[in-house]
Design a protein around this nucleic acid. Structure first.
Lengths: 282, 282
DNA sequence: CGCTGTCTTGAACTGTCTCAACCATGGTGG
DNA sequence: CCACCATGGTTGAGACAGTTCAAGACAGCG
């Protein structure tokens, strides 16, 4: 795509990278504000300049294995965090929306353990890694914000484990949709009707199922009137029942709230967890 | 500490680290040193006291949903990080060994999103959450160390996603064992022969399979002479082949990887392909 | 317009879950 | 000292969900 250079971090001027210089360049005040930190409009943060980099749809922000000399905060758009095996299979690890930190997991090593690419026209704030110690001293709020962002990312990653753990495919999808809905809301967009930026295959990788299964799961959720789906456009019709479905664990006998009468796949959610070890449950 | 254990290869760590508190008590110098940060033995860190807390086997360090007013660093022992659904099912999210941070994912919220309990006699350094901002200013090395620890935790969590993603159960187990082996080495213990601190059920939860399947997978790996296993004692017989097995995605024999007509990108998430007894072994 | 990639749907195969019995260990107490 | 139970691990057999292979629908694009 971009160039043959795998090491192409924002710190270096990219030839074709039209680094957009806003009339007034971005500052750390913008970053802190985006992350929900109250900020003094005339304080140090507002006087500390910050690089903004645009990333085009499909473009890679970081390459797996490239020297990790910057971290990023998503300013706009959607990113895909993934790793590719030697056999070429892409394992998606996360999708990142506005205000999320990218590259945090590289702080403990020399090179990025994952690749990151943009799913649409996007932009990130760039923070050179070597600046971090100084920034933390000069701008304590930044250090704390960075901790917080990392914490959020970790919590998200654990949510994902939760999703993938041991659950029927439709339930996985339902859980993903709910989680995604919440994140859309956090970004100020409609939580009930949104456009998925990723394809079925990328989604299937995240959920840990075959892409055909994702397709079928969408169909099933539609048939249950929980959502309406047109390719990548999703509308959540009944968040409560969708939540109940997503929470559904096992127990094929009782189907209290959610079974419809005529559905083609009229089976219960069937989430095959292992027996909850009654000793513990009781 | 009971000498009844037939195999005690593990856990004898803490070189000269008297867990039962030194006369003076632990300081941040101990913590920083444990995390690999060079530390001035007469600096601020060495003069800042630090609480050490022992946690008995089976005891809970934090409860899910409890107010998150501290983070911890594992000083000795093994911990289990998990969430329990409303149906009583325990979803294990991670195991934590020495020098790992616990509760980092709570920094972005008011209460712990997970429960943490000790799998054996253990100990942690306790850092009250309200102290963190001050500590970061007084002891910049601590702030950076905290970032690093969080980063490591995130990287581990992504490793886990990688494991659980979409892979045959034996491969999942193999990947876990390799990863665990590396961590044991990081703790100064033998990477080839160790005692698992968790039961089959807890392991199965982490790997996202039924506990019976974990049992069978152990048997399979043994039958392939990759490991030797006696209940919870594991010995890795051939790390190279185990690695190849863990990396095995699909047929190891033919790999027309260079043609990009339809082979590489077309692969589906699941890489469960390998005959039980002969594909890789032969 | 045909091409290419994505998405959907169909049908057969198979790995894993589930249920179940069985075995090993350790603790308890008669 | 041994019967007994509790816990955790192993193993077997059937059923089903999901993968896999294959084909068709559809939209975007040179």
């Amino acid at each position: 795509m971009n160039s043959t250079d795998p090491i192409q971090i924002a710190t270096q001027r990219t030839p074709r990278g039209p680094i957009p210089t806003k009339p007034v360049g971005a500052t750390f005040a913008d970053l802190l504000q985006m992350s929900g930190v109250p900020v003094d409009p005339s304080g140090t943060a507002a006087r500390t300049p910050l690089t903004l980099r645009k990333v085009h749809a499909g473009e890679r922000l970081v390459h797996e294995g490239a020297p990790a000399n910057a971290i990023f905060f998503v300013c706009a758009g959607t990113f895909k965090v993934f790793r590719t095996d030697e056999d070429g299979y892409e394992q998606v690890l996360a999708f990142a929306l506005r205000s999320e930190v990218l590259g945090f997991d590289a702080l403990c090593m020399a090179s990025y353990p994952v690749a990151i690419s943009a799913l649409e026209e996007s932009a990130v704030y760039v923070i050179p890694r070597c600046d971090i110690p100084r920034l933390c001293e000069v701008l304590p709020a930044f250090g704390l914000m960075l901790q917080r962002s990392g914490s959020i990312t970790l919590a998200r990653s654990r949510e994902l484990v939760d999703i993938m753990a041991a659950v029927a495919s439709e339930v996985r999808l339902a859980r993903f949709l709910i989680r995604h809905s919440r994140r859309m809301a956090d970004c100020g967009q409609s939580p009930l009707r949104f456009l998925l930026r990723m394809g079925r295959r990328e989604l299937s990788s995240l959920l840990g199922v075959a892409h055909e299964t994702v397709s079928r799961s969408f169909t099933t959720l539609s048939a249950l009137d929980l959502i309406r789906v047109s390719v990548r456009e999703v509308e959540i019709l009944d968040m409560d029942r969708l939540g109940a479905f997503a929470r559904s664990t096992r127990r094929p006998m009782d189907a209290p709230v959610l079974v419809r009468t005529r559905t083609p796949a009229d089976r219960t959610p069937t989430q095959r967890r292992h027996a909850p070890s009654r000793s513990l449950a009781a």
